[in-house]
């Protein structure tokens, strides 16, 4: 491979600077001792300490984590089943509708997903809160989980499953002892994707939540509307750090899975 010309190096530098400088600036200012965002008052972790005493924010963060945990687990289970249905169970009645429903939430504007689910919850008259948001998040991240698992199912050797079946294993035993261990990295990656999607969502949660269930993005959103403050920067920095760790863990998992399963 030839070495990159100056023009291409410039394209890389400009592109990545555009992607990363805003985030770096945000992180840098979370360590600013001054409350004024325009003045650099020296290095300080003051704002991280202030976060610890911000009870509403901590409550919202804890709620969001629990919610993301439950909805990601639901979405991954349903998404993996949907992927199995599409990849292994060939033609069944209503397959076209099924694959359409799996993939539609991927491109559906969030305002519409949120509005439609809220109207359902109102129509059946359930109390809105933790569980309605969980269901909403599971529904919209199911499609993402399905795609991740489906890619993995498409990539591995089906004859392994057939061999297990020939040796007398029931479909369920085959699934537990052959299929699941092989698609496991993708399932884990799908779970992490669903988890971050849930943690990140503002619009759908705003529509489907009720009093008493304010998620972290909703809390951040109302704080941001009031203006810039170093405390928000500190909260954002912590979230960026957590996500970066999760992404690195997920990509390592997927890589290991590829090395083992081929």
């Amino acid at each position: 491979m030839k070495r990159l010309g100056p023009g291409l190096i410039l394209a890389l530098v400009v592109g990545f600077a555009f992607l990363y400088l805003p985030i770096l600036a945000l992180v840098a200012y979370s360590f600013n001792a001054s409350r004024l965002v325009t003045v650099w008052g020296g290095f300080s972790t003051h704002w991280y300490g202030a976060l610890l005493s911000n009870q509403p924010l901590l409550d919202a963060a804890w709620l969001s984590l629990r919610l993301a945990f439950v909805s990601a687990t639901l979405a991954t289970g349903l998404g993996a089943l949907a992927a199995l249905a599409l990849a292994r169970h060939g033609r069944f009645r209503g397959r076209l509708l099924f694959s359409g429903m799996v993939l539609a939430p991927l491109v559906m504007p969030e305002v519409i997903t949120g509005l439609s689910l809220l109207l359902l919850f109102v129509a059946v008259d359930v109390e809105r809160g933790f569980w309605t948001v969980t269901i909403a998040h599971a529904t919209f991240s199911l499609g993402f989980a399905c795609i991740v698992v489906q890619a993995r199912l498409a990539g591995f050797d089906r004859s392994l499953e057939e061999a297990a079946r020939d040796l007398g294993a029931t479909p369920l035993v085959t699934f537990w002892t052959v299929t699941l261990p092989l698609i496991w990295p993708a399932v884990a990656a799908a779970w992490m994707l669903a988890f971050t999607l849930s943690l990140d969502d503002l619009v759908i949660a705003s529509f489907t939540t009720g009093p008493g269930a304010t998620t972290l993005p909703m809390r951040l959103y109302s704080a941001i509307r009031l203006g810039v403050s170093p405390e928000i920067n500190a909260a954002c920095t912590l979230m960026i750090g957590a996500v970066a760790l999760a992404v690195i863990a997920a990509s390592l998992l997927l890589k290991r899975g590829q090395a083992v399963g081929g």
Binding site: F16, Y20, I23, L202, I224, V228
Partner: peptide, 23 residues
């Protein structure tokens, strides 16, 4: 390079918009 392109996408949408408010 691929991971570097995807990484910002994983950080919260709200955070990325907020970063631009500061700028």
């Amino acid at each position: 390079l691929l991971v570097l392109v995807v990484l910002p996408f994983w950080t919260s949408f709200l955070i990325r918009v907020y970063a631009w408010i500061g700028i």
